[in-house]
Design a binder for these strands. Sequence first.
DNA 1: AGACCAACCTGCTGGC
DNA 2: TGCCAGCAGGTTGGTC
Length: 291
Amino acid sequence: MRRGLDRAVVGRVVAGVEVAHVRAVRRHLLGVRDFETALPGRRVLAACRRGKYLWLPLDDDRALVAHLGMSGQLLMVPAEMPLQAHLRVRTRFAGGGSELRFVDQRTFGGLFLDDLVPDRAPVGPAGNHDPVLGGIPAVLSHIARDPCDPAFPDEAFRLALRLRRTGIKRALLDQSLISGVGNIYADEALWRARLHYARPTETLTRRDVEAVLAGVRSVFAQALAAGGTSFDSLYVSTEGVSGLFDRSLAVYARAGQPCLRCGTAVLRDPFMNRSSFTCPRCQPRPRRARW
DNA sequence: AGACCAACCTGCTGGC
DNA sequence: TGCCAGCAGGTTGGTC
């Protein structure tokens, strides 16, 4: 989606914004009216992402920030396209052409404007090869780097896991430790690392943590190449195209089906009001479990 | 400070 | 066929 925005809106000037549903503009302290009036005239300088947040730096040291929540979409569509049932915000650009529509069935996602501030997220030994343009939105200062960011600090992540008193999956879902990992990719990464989700983080060896990071990174790379994971038409690119990674899932949503490594039936457990999927043989439950 | 849960929404599916 | 419980990819803010 970031790449789609990069192609479609970077360099363009906002001509007008219409908010169709006030709750889709969240965390914007000055209100919806200010959101609508502040954007016209601003030029989009880039399309950035950290974890599950996307933002468009503007030419006033602020950024248009988006989080898609569970069901949000950012679509580039011709202005004459019929309005979607769950259209929340329309953004038109100078010179016409396609407009950007934020569509969100469940309204767990939202848009807002925020100040860009210096990026203070911890940096690994590789250094920061990929500085974000003009800083990061102020409210994202608690979001850790994405594991695919070359500056992701592997060693600091390992030490943070040692200090935590929780299970590895809870830690993976904590966006202040590592960003971008959600319920699907956590399960897939842990299957690749052969670790159970309830494994206490303080018992993980250096090798375990390396396996977790390798698992997350390989899942991310393959899922990205496949255009993401789309169980239904809600999960689409800016062009409305569904991703294909659901066909490559090893455990997620495969309860009762054979593990792709050993053939054992995949298990589904309730976890944090959702589900965890594991292979009971490749990922045995630890004697001392934390979840 | 860290851990954990309810709340925020709409829509679909499966069981009765 | 209709109804309802349960479930769906996430984050925040509150309590303990």
